[in-house]
Design a protein around this nucleic acid. Sequence first.
DNA 1: GATGAATGAGTATTCATTCAT
DNA 2: CATGAATGAATACTCATTCAT
Lengths: 223, 223, 223, 223
Amino acid sequence: MSPKIINREKRTAEITRAALDVFSVKGYSAASVGQIAATAKIAKGTIYEYFETKEDLYIAAVMLFVDGFQSSLKSLLENIDDPLTRLITFTKSSLDICDRNDAETTYLFVDILQQSLLKNGVFYNRRYLVREMLLGFRKIITNILLDGVSKGIFKPEIAKDAEKIATNLLAFLDGASLHTKMTENYFDIPSQLDYFMQYLTQSILLNPENYDLNATIAEQAGN
Amino acid sequence: MSPKIINREKRTAEITRAALDVFSVKGYSAASVGQIAATAKIAKGTIYEYFETKEDLYIAAVMLFVDGFQSSLKSLLENIDDPLTRLITFTKSSLDICDRNDAETTYLFVDILQQSLLKNGVFYNRRYLVREMLLGFRKIITNILLDGVSKGIFKPEIAKDAEKIATNLLAFLDGASLHTKMTENYFDIPSQLDYFMQYLTQSILLNPENYDLNATIAEQAGN
Amino acid sequence: MSPKIINREKRTAEITRAALDVFSVKGYSAASVGQIAATAKIAKGTIYEYFETKEDLYIAAVMLFVDGFQSSLKSLLENIDDPLTRLITFTKSSLDICDRNDAETTYLFVDILQQSLLKNGVFYNRRYLVREMLLGFRKIITNILLDGVSKGIFKPEIAKDAEKIATNLLAFLDGASLHTKMTENYFDIPSQLDYFMQYLTQSILLNPENYDLNATIAEQAGN
Amino acid sequence: MSPKIINREKRTAEITRAALDVFSVKGYSAASVGQIAATAKIAKGTIYEYFETKEDLYIAAVMLFVDGFQSSLKSLLENIDDPLTRLITFTKSSLDICDRNDAETTYLFVDILQQSLLKNGVFYNRRYLVREMLLGFRKIITNILLDGVSKGIFKPEIAKDAEKIATNLLAFLDGASLHTKMTENYFDIPSQLDYFMQYLTQSILLNPENYDLNATIAEQAGN
DNA sequence: GATGAATGAGTATTCATTCAT
DNA sequence: CATGAATGAATACTCATTCAT
């Protein structure tokens, strides 16, 4: 409550932000604490007043990234009622992150991967954090599907497979965005996604003929 | 043709193999030239008689990995005629790589990702190599699909979308295997894949009712 | 006399006490001002309101240690009249310091040694302080010896050598306790001491046959 | 056997020598690897081709010191037959080390103490090395005593106490030399030692009246 | 007077690369 | 051709001390 605590939190946030910027561009191992300090415009030692190790700083930066990602998704979906529109909005905006020109977030995403897979990686012993993040996203999709079922828009029989569908959708989204980045946008990812979503929606909609998916997609893109 | 050249090629291959072993476990930056030399049972300085830099060595190792991956896939598909079985075989064995206990190949795959995405990454200016690798895989799948169409097993109308379908399948496969690794096998990837393939095959088979997909999958798994 | 001065003295004493605790465990260079501040439950900066440097703080702590050591010895000897008992009490309690499980005092003692011997050591230019401390102890022993002579218990001819005897006894005591600590109690120091004292007392007692040294030692140990 | 091995050993010895020089003056923690490298006139990194850590380097330096000390003692005693002369020679030359003007060895000795006593000290978990060193010295003295007994020069009854006598003598020697160093030669250590040795020899000689200790000492000092 | 945030110089250690043998 | 000794730049982290509040 005291002003000091507020300053401390503020400074912690500043450093974390700077760390996120640097880690996103350089990755964990190539980034140096000195660079992060310079970015935050503070002395190198000051970093260690707020974080014990470079690893801790990395974790904080990743958390900031994940939280920002999730909350921006949540606010996007906030005022949408129609389950189909929600689903399409979710997938579109997931990939938008990779289409943005400042898309360093993708670099960070791969870096998290790296640090999760390699023994001695920062996240190797913290894979539960990654898992929880993925489960959070899966929950969002699962809820959309079940909501659609209860509203009579999606087929009732998909309810029992909602988690599987959600898991597969997430896998596709991540695989697609990585391929895109790796190949310098060689694939036209939006049209690939539309194609995937047409198959998916045809499979889950109760009355596919009542929906013009292209219109829904176009409408969503317009916002 | 001279014995020296033969020795040189042989030694180059040995070093590349050792490099692949080390890079697969440690990743590019954590791997040291000394470790690679030790693995190849030669002196550190000798490496530099065959490769100019650590980067060159990494590129050679990745090439060796990709070539081995592609040729093992080719030989797997070599004696299979039925397009559906070919398709399923392809997807199964792609994921098998990630299910193997010594699945260091996944680590390397992510490392390639990392080095492709990061500015200053080894592969950042060689992303065309990654693209060509992906295009090679896409070509295999596309050919399977077109073969199925011409044999009257897959729907004729998918011919024009064969590349899109192949691209999406690859994206799903990579996304799924990465998620699996990241989350310590929290997701049951084989059953997820089966689920995905059921939807896919229902969409592309001309007469889905004539095929018992589960039987085909089980049969394939048996081999 | 003003309350502020009293507070200042009290606070100075608290900090010195905390410093002694930390220096005793960690030694001068491994101890950090931050740890001392934490032990004293004050802020790091506050230390520098009371002491100019870490060196000054160390000197104050050592003084506190030496004073405490000497005054506890004095009070131990206060009510003992018999010179032989006084002598044995002195040696026993000197070594007791090293037998106590929390024998951090030994660490400090060696640390003082270190800082006295090394050029650039805190005590290198203050060795006179160390010398005075040793002279203080020598004085105590010398007085015991001379008292014994005047009481007709010790041989008269040792009077002229009293200082030499005292110096040698101190050297033996310190050497013995250091060896003990260094070797993890490999030597049975109490029995070594008894052995040493038997020789010593036989040399200085006027009528050794009148004394049962073991009884005197046992009696002393009982207190 | 190959020249390379010889060079490696030679270089290892050079570095160890440089390390001993620096550690002797600065102590373990104040000495820096850079200073040692500069003293050895090699690059900092080269140190790590020969020693894994600063700790290993310290241990090697201490071993060099101890070995040198022990072998110089041995060669001194080599051609002396008379047990009493051997005993006096041993004590004299032990203290000589501390009287030499370049007596940095004493600093190192205290540093070893420090590193043996402090938790986290380099020698804390290697105290057995220190113990073995002390036991080596004790063995030398014990042998002298037993030799004297068997030659009919020392009293037969001291045979059973030979180890205790040796232990006490060592303790005295170390304590005395430390006090001397700490107090800037305030005590006249040679005369203190003579005094101590007179008592000791009177206690152990079978016929003290047959020996003129002062003459023996003077004679020894003359060499 | 008390605080604790900020500093920046200092340290051990790693490693790609070179080059004399 | 092969070696491996030598290099030195780079990096994470520590801590005594200062100073604005």
